[in-house]
Write a protein that binds this DNA or RNA. Structure first.
Length: 762
DNA sequence: GTCGTCCCGGGTTCC
DNA sequence: CCGGGACGAC
């Protein structure tokens, strides 16, 4: 079973007891090592439930589970595999009461936190001085390091606001039985110091293994120390070149502190890359090599050659997306490429929109990982708030969210009266509402009282549904029905309302899946926890092969035969935002590591792209090609220089561009991938003609203008070639310019209507 | 008490 | 471009 491991991998896998540090480069099989190591431990008699494996994302946990299942079968299920957050949530549910964390605690998402902070700022009269976001950042920055936000002084004017409001924030959360993401870890740290629970935690896991250790923060480091210091059986795996979570408090120095804290640690370096072609690896290494703050390592590969990187500069983001979608279409149609083999990576979620649209236009199905996803949709959050309120009446945040959602005539005035009652009697809002309805407390009367009574009845009815033993899915359905959410959305005939209804249906499905998975043991709390800790898209099961689209951050740990890296523009990638609290050089180094991570996701082909103009917030901005491209050796990335290059002229880098031998020119591979760079026109310019839709008005490239005119001239009778359908004859035409449509008769396929700009005259 | 309109601001990245 | 909050009109 371990036959295919190399020497060093085998050493790591078969390492016995004691601390182990695996320093691993990209694509060196570190996840494999972890998986095999766990399997080996179990084969040597360690019980599955004595093993804790910490992954960085839920997705990674899922994958590890899956791979272990292949090796071990059902023994996997009692194992602790998950993120720090998910693990801590589990530990807290079990032991939290020892430190006064209630069993029904709920996890606040960033949105909830911002709302709470916003309210506190307003009450304090400081909402002009500081945004909720700023304050939250200050809280988090301290908490990431395990420090008390009120005692961190930066000499800024915010210090006293932080000192004043953080205790209020913490108190508010405590009252509501709520914890934020950081609390989840910090509470467990407190638990570790508890006289009874602490020792149990320290010996609960005979082996602790942590992936992506370079991205742990100080609190996580201390957690690992607590959980492992008694047994000393701790394996950590990381690569300082792939540290991309500095903004979240990650401290790559944890890897080196680890060596200090365990002087007898065994260190194993994995340096053979099995993933990428040497050209891709060379390119990525050239980019990362410019970082000063790094522990140099030498990654090598036995995979020779490979295609040079692809490059395309489009007029705008739509053109870029269209190029990418077109290339993928061609690969799937003409080569042995499946949609699952391809990933599109980008720096920010905002870029996903255009890409998604164009993929669909080319008949491709995107799977968007992360992003403004499902669980952040308003209607989903509304229904979730009902569930929270039902399981945790102390949740005032949830009460305020749903008391008038959907609108039932309960306005601010009424809610204010309830607030007064709540404050006077020191009760949660729901309880106060009950009393107001029953006794008319707070001066509540007439229609308002009646409407509020209706809301209380709704909650009571739903509580009865739970008491009757309904499944979680059934409860979700009842919430949607009884709140009249469905009715109201159905009455609304708009596209938007239909979408929202669809999302609620999806939520029911998620709940039903949860019910199935836990086999009727499920409680609402469990579903809520899963929703809070699972990024949207983490659990998409596939009905059809989809092209993955994701941020570079979310792509860490993954690999794909074909990778498109979009938006290679200065300001976007690298992002060039000023942060007063962060050193610019450090920020640039992190961007560089991010580029390194992105590029090393690719196994066989890597295609970079950029747009000359980009729309952000409705404003069109001119873009400059990313500075990272200058670091890539021209031999790896043939592209026209920024200045016009005369063909065959001078001692420019074209002389050393891709040797013809490395040009894989299998028939039918279209224009994708490699092209000898010594042609008269570079292939990317050529492509642009057929893909770019929206040329920026200032672009005076005559060639492309001519191409447009040509589109309009294509009429009935013309013989044309289409990228997907092949050659055919035009039978009808309508529209002009980029909207010009042609009806074409393809001999094999029949008649199709296609846009003129996707065909060329035969 | 709700609903429409206008204005403002949006932190990139994730658990 | 978008959504949320503030404000004014019913």
């Amino acid at each position: 079973m371990r036959g295919s491991l190399n020497e060093r991998q085998r050493l790591a896998v078969e390492h016995g007891d004691g601390p182990l540090l695996v320093l691993s480069g990209a694509g060196t099989g570190k996840t494999r090592v972890l998986v095999h190591r766990i399997a080996t431990l179990i084969e040597h008699g360690v019980a599955p439930w004595e093993i804790l494996a910490v992954t960085f994302t839920n997705k990674a946990a899922q994958e590890m589970r899956e791979r272990l299942r292949q090796l071990l079968g059902d023994r996997v299920s009692p194992m602790w595999i998950g993120t720090f957050h998910a693990t801590c949530a589990r530990l807290l549910r079990r032991w939290g009461e020892a430190i006064d964390v209630p069993r029904d605690f709920q996890i606040l998402d960033t949105d909830d936190q911002l709302k709470v902070i916003g309210k506190l700022l307003k009450e304090d009269g400081s909402d002009e001085a500081c945004s909720p976001r700023t304050l939250l950042t200050r809280f988090d920055r301290a908490k990431n390091r395990g420090e008390d936000p009120t005692t961190v002084h930066t000499g800024q004017y915010l210090d006293d606001i932080v000192a004043r409001l953080y205790p209020k924030y913490a108190e508010r959360l405590r009252k509501e039985h709520a914890v934020d993401f950081n609390d989840l870890l910090l509470h467990v740290l407190r638990l570790a110091e508890h006289p009874e629970v602490g020792p149990r935690l320290a010996t609960q896991f005979r082996h602790v293994l942590v992936d992506e250790f370079q991205d742990t923060n100080r609190v996580q480091y201390r957690l690992v120390m607590h959980l492992a210091h008694a047994t000393r059986n701790v394996t950590v795996v990381g690569d300082d070149d792939q540290s991309i979570y500095g903004w979240r408090g990650a401290e790559p120095r944890n890897m080196f502190d680890f060596e200090r804290d365990f002087p007898d640690v065994t260190v194993i370096r994995l340096e053979q890359n099995y993933r990428s072609t040497s050209i891709i690896l060379d390119a990525a290494n050239a980019v990362i090599a410019r970082n000063r703050e790094r522990h140099a390592k030498s990654l090598w590969t036995e995979r020779g050659g490979g295609d040079p990187l692809g490059w395309h500069e489009a007029g705008d983001e739509r053109g870029e997306a269209s190029f990418i979608a077109g290339e993928i279409r061609k690969m799937i149609d003409h080569e042995d490429v499946s949609p699952r083999d391809v990933a599109i990576l980008y720096r920010t979620h905002a870029q996903s929109r255009a890409l998604e649209d164009q993929l669909r236009r080319f008949g491709l199905h995107p799977e968007i990982v992360g992003g403004l996803g499902f669980y952040e949709r308003k209607e989903v959050k509304d229904v979730v708030a009902y569930l929270r309120l039902l399981t945790n009446p102390a949740s005032d945040i949830s009460f305020e969210r749903v008391v008038n959602t959907p609108s039932r005539g309960i306005g601010d005035v009424t809610v204010d009266k309830v607030r007064v009652v709540a404050r006077e009697r020191e009760l949660p809002l729901v309880e106060a509402a009950r009393i107001a309805v029953r006794e008319g407390a707070g001066g509540l009367a007439g229609a308002a009282r009646k409407k509020l009574a209706g809301f209380v009845d709704l909650l009571d009815g739903l509580t009865a549904v739970i008491a009757a033993g309904a499944s979680v899915a059934e409860l979700v359905i009842q919430v949607v029905e009884r709140s009249r959410y469905r009715e109201i959305l159905e009455a609304d005939k708009s596209e938007e309302a239909r979408g929202r209804l669809g999302n609620l249906a999806e939520l029911v499905t998620v709940a039903a899946d949860y019910d199935d998975e836990v086999g009727g043991e499920g409680d609402v709390l469990g579903l809520l926890e899963r929703l809070a800790l699972t990024a949207p898209g983490d659990d998409t099961r596939d009905d059809q092969p989809r092209v993955r689209m994701t941020t570079v951050h979310a792509a860490k740990g993954l690999e794909f035969p074909v990778v498109f890296l979009a938006g290679m523009e200065d300001g976007l990638f690298p992002s060039l935002r000023e942060r007063e609290d962060q050193d610019q050089d450090a920020a640039m180094e992190e961007e560089r590591r991010l580029a390194y991570v992105a590029m090393t996701r690719a196994k066989d082909r890597l295609i970079l792209s950029a747009a000359r103009t980009r729309r952000t917030w409705g404003e069109i901005r001119m873009q400059v090609v990313s500075r990272f491209l200058d670091d890539i050796p021209p031999a790896c990335l043939p592209r026209p220089s920024r200045k016009p290059v005369h063909v065959g002229g001078g001692a420019d880098w074209r002389r050393v561009t891709a040797p013809t031998s490395s040009t894989v020119s299998s028939p039918g591979r279209g224009r994708a991938g490699a092209r000898p760079a010594h042609r008269g026109t570079s292939w990317d310019e050529h492509d642009q003609r057929s893909y770019d839709d929206d040329e920026p008005s200032f672009d005076l490239d005559g060639d492309r203008d001519r191409a447009k005119v040509r589109e309009d001239r294509i009429g009935p009778g013309a013989s044309v070639v289409h990228g997907q359908f092949g050659s055919g004859r035009v039978v009808d035409a309508s529209g002009q310019g980029k909207d010009r449509k042609l009806v074409i008769d393809f001999p094999e396929i029949g008649q199709k209507t296609v846009l003129a700009r996707f065909v060329t005259v035969a």
